[in-house]
Write a protein that binds this DNA or RNA. Structure first.
Lengths: 211, 211
DNA sequence: ACCGATACTGACTCGTCGGTCAGTCTAGCA
DNA sequence: TGCTAGACTGACCGACGAGTCAGTATCGGT
């Protein structure tokens, strides 16, 4: 045996092709809508070969989630930069974060899908683990800004963190939808969206000093 | 024939039981994970009977979405109250909106699921139609506030609308997740969350006059 | 009492699904 | 050259999926 779906280490050619195909299909259509045959075909191998690497469909799915979680986590964590003022850090993060979401839509959809699943926690913890760090980092940035006197002290950092992440996720999730609203001008210009979004947010939480 | 899945009118006992069961199961597990047999069992009827009302599984799904869209739309539209100041209207809406989301989690998940579907637009337009009204109403509230001088004129109403809806949706969507973060105190207190959220937002967009 | 239409069912077809298996092909090594 | 281990395959299996069908129960109108 080569891999029991709990290790996340380096693997051969076939293994990678399977993961890649599975990631694509699972993200686009969901677990139940994707057959092992479809994955095999997309990967250019035989269905039976998948079972050489993974004991069953669930294990494959889990492996995909794990691999996705790892790369997403690294990607997003890289957007955190605690240097400079809280305002700068927030803006910098927001733009980078959204950029990463838009660059890896499949990975993101994979986890958004997972969040909607009821009953089976499947691999909820995976998504959580990655997000927890991110969340904590942002909260920290805000707290620092509060201690420094740059930001007001009467707001909950976790709340604003939720708002900022939420604003980005909703933008990502509703792109197609927003595109149809005539009053919406910021689609196709995510940096512009984030600039304005952070501006509103900052005006709401910054201590009154500069105009 | 009784219904061709495009009319949304009053129907008999069996029809309602089928829709109810299907709505529950589809929302909890997704289209592909739910079998017609499961729906029939849950509704307490025979599988074949479903085909008396609906030509196939897709039609049933569509009917469920339609029914859900109708009630969600009515529910959410009722949260819009354009009287009073823009600040009041926004706060009032936010609280009511989130309350409705939390009260009808299945309907909401049904549409969030739909939004993640790639390729097949299935019934995307349905979700859209309902949301478009809502979106327009909020934008209108904000614009009115701008004209009255209550709100600043240098922000995009559509942006703030997105932020507000996004904040609520993300709260709804990430409840379980947020619950695990020790720094988050506002879970289980949605009104508190919305109060603080709208406060931040308003401070960001209100004209400086009152403290 | 009878009729027609609607509500409903159990038993079936048939395709596809996840998963297995017996065996081939290839590469490294003795 | 021969042996072995891992990579890989086509053919197959039982289970279960959507959808069909022939027929029965129910009921309002005549």
């Amino acid at each position: 045996m080569e891999n029991d779906a709990t290790s996340v280490s380096s693997e051969g050619e076939g293994y990678r092709k399977i993961i890649a195909a599975a990631e694509k299909l699972f993200a686009d259509h969901g677990f139940d809508a994707v057959s092992m045959h479809a994955i095999a075909t997309d990967a250019g191998i035989s269905k039976a070969n998948i079972y050489h690497y993974f004991p069953n469909k669930d294990a494959l799915y889990l492996a995909v989630l794990q691999s996705a979680a790892a790369s997403l986590r690294a990607l997003l964590q890289a957007a955190v930069d605690k240097s400079g003022t809280a305002s700068e850090a927030l803006h910098h993060f927001a733009v980078n974060h959204l950029q990463h979401l838009l660059a890896r839509p499949r990975l993101v959809r994979l986890f958004l899908r997972e969040m909607l699943e009821k009953g089976e926690p499947r691999a909820r913890d995976l998504a959580d683990a990655g997000l927890a760090d991110l969340f904590a980092s942002l909260v920290q940035i805000l707290q620092l800004g509060q201690e420094r006197g740059e930001l007001r002290k009467d707001f909950d950092p976790a709340l604003v963190t939720t708002m900022l992440l939420g604003a980005n996720v909703i933008f990502f999730q509703s792109l197609d939808l927003l595109r149809q609203y005539p009053t919406v001008t910021f689609v196709d210009r995510p940096e512009e969206y984030d600039r304005a979004m952070v501006e509103v947010l900052l005006r709401g939480i910054r201590n009154r000093s500069e105009p």
